[in-house]
Structure formats: C-alpha cells, structure tokens
Write a protein that binds this DNA or RNA. Structure first.
Lengths: 351, 351
DNA sequence: TCTCGTCCAGACAACGTTGTCTCGCCGTCG
DNA sequence: CGACGGCGAGACAACGTTGTCTGGACGAGA
C-alpha cells in the first residue's frame, strides 16, 4: 500500500483556518483570535471554533504565522557543533535542547567537522530558514561575515570557542587553567619530563591548552623540550604513532598531557599496546565515558559540557528576550578528576 | 555595546526581493526568476539582478518561499531519538544529517527520553513547522495518531523500532538474531547458566532481544531459570545492583547477556567492583567506545547505527521523491565482536 | 505588408496567517 | 430620547515569495 498521497492532494488535505472558519460559520480572523488565545472573544464562539478545529484536526501553520507576525519568530534556533556524533558535541546539543524546549523552541543542528567552508554554508542555510538565533562552536577563525546578520537582529552565542573578529557572547571552558592544573598535578607527583599531545594548534582551545602547558612548566622553572611536544594529531592513528615515538626517545617522558578527548583515548590505546599504561602517567583534557573503569582509571580535566550548552542557550534566550547589555565571554571552570593514571610516579617505571 | 538592533529595526534590516528589484530597476518576479535559476531571463538582466542581490546581501526567505511553492517543501526534516546525548542516538542523527545535507536539507531534532507524551508533543511541534518528513525512534507503542498526517502527505520512517498500529517504513537491527548469536556464543564456550539483564521489557527492541535469549536457550534444550532474568534496569544503579544480586545467588550464572549499552557498562562496573570481571563471561548488545581497551575487552553484538540512520534517511528521501511502493521494514544485520569477555569459560572461575 | 508565433518581462493573485481599521450592537448617561 | 463609549466580529491589507496570465517586441513566413 502506498504511504500517504501524492504531492498535489497532500496540500489540500491539511485544513487551514479558512476551513475551520467555514465549519464554525465565523470569520478567519476570529479563528485566529481563538487560536492565539486573545481574550476578547465571546466564550461561546470560542468553543465553536475549538470544536471545529478539533473535528478537522486543525494545526496552525507556523511558517505562515512567522511570515506575518510582527516579531517574526520561528520558534526555532540553529546549533552548529563539531560533530553531532562526538560525545562532547552531543552533550552540548542535548543541554541546549532542554533549555529550548522549555520555551517551545526546537533546534536545527549541523556538524561542521572543523571545516570553515561548511560553517558558512550551514550558517546560511540556517539563516535562510530564519532561525531566531544561533548557538555555535565555530570551525573557522573569522566570523566577521556574521556582522551584518548580527546587525539585522539575529542573536548568536558561541560555545567552547570564542568568535574571531566579531563581538558576540561566548561561553567557554577555562582551557588554560585546566591545562595548568593538569600539568601541575603531574609535577606534584614528581614528573619532570611531561609530553604534550594535542590537536591542531590552529583550534583556539588547543592553543589555550598548550599555552597552559607551557605556562605551568615555565612557572616550575622547567625547560620546554620541543621533542616532547606533538601538535596536529587529528586522527587516532597519528595520535597513537606520536605516543610510540615519544616513548622511543632516548629520554622518554614519564608523563603525558593529552589535550583532547580522542587524543587521550588514542594514547590509552597506544600505552596499552606498549604495556606501559601502568608506568607512564597521563592526564587528559575532557572526560569521557568509562574513563573510570580502565586500569588504571584515566585522570582527566573534566569540562562541564552540560553547563556550556545550557548557559549558551540561556544567554541566547536572554538576548532574544531583549537583553541588550554588553556582550561578554563567560568562563565555565574545569575540574580535575584523579583516577589513577595521573597519580603514577616516575619511580613506578619498570620496577 | 548592545548586540544587533531591537525587534522593529531588525525586520526592516533584511533586504527582500522587492529591495533587490528596486535597485536593479526590474520587477520582483524577474528577481524571483533569477534567484530560482529560471533560464528564460535575459543574461544581462540576470547579472543586473545578481549584482544588486550581492550588493544588498540578499538572502531568500525560505519560509515565505515554502508558503507559496506548490510542492510546499521546507527543506527541513524532523528527527526524534531517545536522547541526543546517547552515543547510539547521536550516531543515528549524524548519519541522517549527512544524507540530508547532500540534498540541501537540514534536520530538526528532539529527545524523547522514552516518554510517549513527549513523542506526541514533539511530533506536533515538528508538523507545525511543516517539516517535509520525519525520522523517529518511537517512544510509545501506538503511532496510530500519525495516520491522518501520513494521509496528509507527511512521509515518515521509523528507526531502531517499528511503529505500532501504523503502516510505515522502518529500519531496524536484527535484535532477535543478535541476541541468539550472543547466547549461542556463550553456550559454545561452555556456559550453561547465563544471566539476562535488560532494559524495560515494554521497549520492543528489549523484548526482541529477550525473545532471542529465550529461543537460544530453548534450542539448546536448557531450562530458563527466572532467577537469572532481570528486566526494567533503566538506571545504572539498578543494573549494578542486579548484577550483584545475580552473583550472590547460591548457583550464580557463569555468564551474562546484557541487552543494552548502558546496562552493559553498568555490568562491567559491577563485575569490576566484585573483582569477577576475569571470571564471569559477558556479551553485551550494542557496541560502545573503549569496549576494546578494557581488560578483558568486552565482547559485543554490534549494531550498525550509521547504517540504520543512513538507510532511514535514504528511505525517507526516496519517499519524498515519489516512491509509492509498499511500506516495508528493512533489517540491518548485527555483528558479533569477540574481545575477550565473551570467550571466558566456566572453568576460569576462581582458579 | 500582414499575420502569426515566440520570447520574455511584468501585473496580479495567491499561499496561511496576523495587524489594523471599521462598523454594528448594546448599555449607559445626560 | 439621543449621544457616546466600549466591546467584539469581520473586512482588508500585508508578510515575502511564486504560479498564472497578459501583453509588447520582434522575427519569420506568406
């Protein structure tokens, strides 16, 4: 059996206010008033409208309503993240969704995969649909192309990374301080040679974390050995290889600081393959599920993705509600979760 | 500095075809023709329109276009999953997003949290926005309320679970066969007492997996011991407690079959706490990240979430393209991934 | 030269809804 | 008894766009 009807019939099949008005023997405008809960309608007529609407299965057409309404709200916001399938992005989306839902707003989403071109494409696609606002993790480093849109009244909030060349609200983790905490934790356990494994240094968060790493070493008056630093580990394979290379050095690191989720996991895997996971200490940036039941548990600097998404959405809605105060960047603190891997000492090397 | 302008100005700030037409000294309709790439426009006038559009930063208003167009397409689909933050749901969403994007379609999403009331609310919210189609993991067991919508021409495809009381396309994993494979794998390794830990039995997939468990035991002419079966483990705590209770039985199971992601992880955690993870065999339904680097690695029946999401979206678009063949359920096979936990034998008990 | 057909731009209406204005009704007050 | 005010319903236009139709210009063929 075919599913539903063909295009032409489909259109006529959905009742409009006109149909409801005809059935109730009233004008379209009165139906509109009832649907929008305007109080100046005779209660008897209102029930007549409601009965007719129920009978026909009438549902308001939000796109038409949006077109005509003076506030022009679509009750829809757009959310662009790095990759909807990645746990961090997924947590951001879910948190924003919950805030949006409490206001009857739905969320359109898109994954950018760190591609600035895709960022622009998807932003345009969202704007063409006249979303009320935008929450995004920018992929590119220049969002100045959004200035006109911002001027046109579209509200936007950046999450996880601040916008480039554009004044707008942002909600970010305290990346630099988190990295400092991680490195100081390793230093406190006696490590002096601490490797850094990070994602593309062009990503602002990666740069901030690397900055924290450098600062913590400097503060401890330790030299920064370039041999222990590896950037641009965007694939799992690259990250695993980097770990192997670091540990094959004449003077290998006794501890690792991994600046991102996937890098951390890749490092775990590599250490296990080398059977050094009980020797080489490790602290990762960003928590991940099951980090606690590995052996040893993986110590991490946890970001509060929930809070990031929630606050971003809240800021967006406060802007939509008319908050015109100065734009600002809100920083959400990170938290060190010791689970074992970060508490290994250099002495535990190959007993 | 305030961000953007206030509502009233915002509206006027965005140029329309009228503005472009005025600047180009042509009629609105000609602008429309150029924007839509109609060929019967004088090339010179077309470039005049394009220049004017670029100059003003004109972007078409998709909601207005949708209202007027005969096909009524919004280039937007809706996707309802269990929880956008859950890896399985997130993978479904990402896969569907990629298919949609290749056709210039964006995705509105919502999380149902197994709540049928929320399912109806969100379906309505999506329909009010006139999405072209719906991809959903149903939360309730009765989708007959969608029949009218289906008749009105809205295409819908169900993923992971078939719809109840409604004829519609569905794309599901082979849950029963997957469960049979899991149990037979444990039987082949010598287990005779195999525990079942599952989510709410009212969820169709959980029921199908339990059915497979029962069938495999029956086929092996083994009795089904009700003491070894625990349903409705919807929280991590409940699942961990169930494991402890099962292992505290006078005749504890030597192997566990966990019928869902979160239950599997909870069971891992519980076994580790009891220090029995090297003794009690386990196969889980649904793969999860890091299952391979635990010790032992967790053997799982992997679902292909990517394929589910991708195929569902493809089916939806083929319907939108006019495919009116009979609705059908497509089954995506599962795959046993042995990693260690499923290959433990009863003999390995406390050597 | 006239007719006819082709080609393309614009006038007009319409999509489903809401903002604005008008108008009729009723009750009240002078 | 007439004027007035308030209330509520409907007529009309408009949001930004596209489908349909008209009409003018132009070229070709008789």
């Amino acid at each position: 059996m075919p599913q539903g009807e063909s295009g032409a019939d489909a259109r006529s099949a959905r009742p409009t206010m006109k149909d409801v008005a005809a059935l109730a023997g009233l004008s379209i405008k009165t139906v509109s008033r009832v649907v929008n809960g305007v109080s100046t309608v005779d209660p008897e007529l209102a029930t007549r409208v409601q009965d007719a609407a129920r009978k026909l299965g009438y549902r308001p057409n939000l796109t038409a309503s949006n077109l005509r309404r003076s506030d022009g709200r679509t009750l829809t916001i757009g959310m662009l993240v790095e990759d909807a399938a990645n746990p961090f992005s997924a947590a951001l989306m879910r948190a924003a969704e919950d805030i949006a839902r409490s206001r009857g707003v739905l969320v359109l989403f898109g994954s950018l995969d760190e591609d600035p071109a895709r960022e622009r494409e998807l932003v345009e696609a969202l704007l063409d649909r006249r979303v009320d606002g935008l929450v995004m993790v920018p992929a590119g480093r220049d969002q100045s192309y959004l200035a006109a849109e911002q001027q046109a009244g579209t509200r936007m909030v950046f999450v996880d990374r601040e916008p480039g060349l554009l004044g707008a609200d942002a909600v970010v983790s305290d990346n630099r301080q988190g990295a400092i905490t991680a490195v100081e934790h390793l230093l406190a356990h006696g490590h002096r040679r601490i490797g850094y494994l990070g994602d593309q240094i062009t990503i602002p968060t990666a740069a901030q974390r690397f900055d924290g790493y450098q600062y913590a070493l400097e503060y401890a008056r330790l030299p920064l050995d370039p041999d222990l630093v590896r950037h641009d580990l965007h694939s799992t394979e690259a990250a695993e290889e980097a770990v192997e290379q670091l540990l094959a050095l004449p003077e290998p690191p006794t501890a690792l600081f991994t600046s991102q989720n996937l890098v951390t996991i890749a490092a775990c895997r590599a250490l296990r393959r080398l059977r050094k996971h009980q020797e080489v200490a490790m602290v990762g940036f960003d928590d991940f599920p099951l980090a606690d039941i590995l052996e040893p548990g993986i110590s991490v600097i946890a970001q509060d993705a929930d809070a990031l998404g929630r606050i971003a959405a809240q800021v967006l809605f406060s802007r939509l509600d008319g908050d015109t105060s100065a734009t600002r960047t809100m920083t959400v603190p990170t938290r060190l979760i010791p689970r074992g891997s970060g508490e290994l000492t250099p002495r535990s090397v190959r007993a």
